[in-house]
Design a protein around this nucleic acid. Structure first.
Lengths: 228, 228
DNA sequence: CGAACCCTTGATGGCGATCAAACGCCGTGG
DNA sequence: CCACGGCGTTTGATCGCCATCAAGGGTTCG
């Protein structure tokens, strides 16, 4: 692979603490590949051949049961994804497709598992990563079970704002229809949810969202109180 | 702690492969305690002091946002729970309370983290456990987002049957109101969901459920196709 | 024996899905 | 360069699933 993006990947929590030589083996054994938009990278049910690291672009993870599908996650760079399937060597539960042209580092799953067993720091990082991902899913499930749609949208906006800098301006990185699916509603109802939030401190201009009144939005959305 | 339940605990995936001497340290540093029914063991937001292993009894894990709560999991023996919070040393996201009188092994969180870092087999087991738990939550979230209530109940019954022996008889271990909350519905609607399923191969007699026609129920509930 | 409480069944209401149509944006092709 | 067509978004109307409210029957426990 080219050297340009190595530092950024090496800075990921997953690889940060591991042995330098072993990290080189990760890079040496991997492929950095460019994919066009709207391309399916893998499908749920397939055997996991690679750990994926999104270096640049945008990826959707979705899942389905019966004839309905739902967006599970929108992956932004630089992040690894589908770690759990690789660790357990069990079929993917989600389908991945690019939303934009994307550069993705493909680390052979067997190599990942081998290095995990050789490098304690990597194993520990994997363990922590999984534990954090687990917590994220617990929150997502609670969100879905206890809040109605406009509240979920409000909380999503609050979280997005927190993840970025201060200022209250949020740029939606994906289409609204995708955000709707991520939040477990239809595009029509997302639209209506935005208009509900306009009475609670949120201003919408296309994909530019402004949280004008953080207080009001928080009061409406009842965000999680437990930190991290 | 007494010796009677050691073998059963040692057989858990989490402790099974680890160094014998280290496992003795787990037992030596832990407390096996008996709790009455309806007792809160810990609350969401608290700092995790113990990894819990339910040896006997029944425990509910629940979570809330704002004024609504929801059952996240019903823990049956012999199982460890809240591993993720202990590993990350981050506040519990869920509240635990006993449903029946329960015997629980309390393993100090600091000890768990110390031994994980000393024993590769334990760390690996923890990693696998977390990855499996992650997959379980992915399925739960997809379930909630893509299926309606009677389908969720149908799938729950199919999964329960698969986890136990053949025969089609399922005994609900907890109250129906709890099952309702676990499945993200009200007790009233659980009742109605059961009566819907009576047209699809399910027979209900109190807390004894029989899957009389596995085919019919599967056709109705669209169970997950991806194994494990 | 009475008082809770759980479960069930019925009636009503609200949230969100579906159906439908209009608008705007963007890319393509004439 | 403009016209057209496709698609995403928005808004309105209707429908259906599920929550809520209400009441009655059964069981358990004091």
């Amino acid at each position: 692979m080219r050297t340009g993006e190595k530092p950024e990947i090496a800075r990921l929590p997953l690889f940060r603490e591991m042995d330098e030589a072993k990290r080189e083996r990760v890079f040496a054994g991997s492929f950095l590949q460019v994919f066009p938009p709207q391309l399916t990278l893998f499908e749920a049910g397939q055997h996991p051949d690679f750990l994926h690291v999104l270096v640049d672009g945008l990826v959707e993870l979705s899942a389905s049961s019966g004839d309905r599908d739902t967006t599970m996650r929108i992956v932004e760079p630089v992040t690894s994804f589908i770690l759990a399937a690789v660790v357990n060597d069990l079929p993917y539960l989600m389908t991945a497709r690019t939303l934009e042209a994307s550069r993705i580092l493909l680390v052979p799953a067997a190599l990942v598992r081998e290095l995990i067993n050789q490098d304690t720091a990597l194993m520990q990082a994997t363990m922590h990563e999984l534990a954090l991902a687990y917590r994220g899913l617990v929150r997502a499930l609670v969100d879905m079970k206890t809040r109605q749609s406009a509240e979920r949208l409000g909380n999503y906006l609050l979280r997005q704002q927190a993840r970025r800098q201060e200022g209250g301006l949020i740029q939606l990185q994906a289409e609204k229809r995708l955000l709707a699916s991520l939040l477990g509603m239809t595009p029509e109802n997302l639209s209506r949810a935005f208009s509900v939030l306009s009475n609670h401190g949120v201003r919408v201009e296309g994909s530019n969202i402004t949280i004008a009144d953080h207080e009001a939005l928080s009061a409406f959305a009842h965000p999680d109180k437990i930190p991290v």
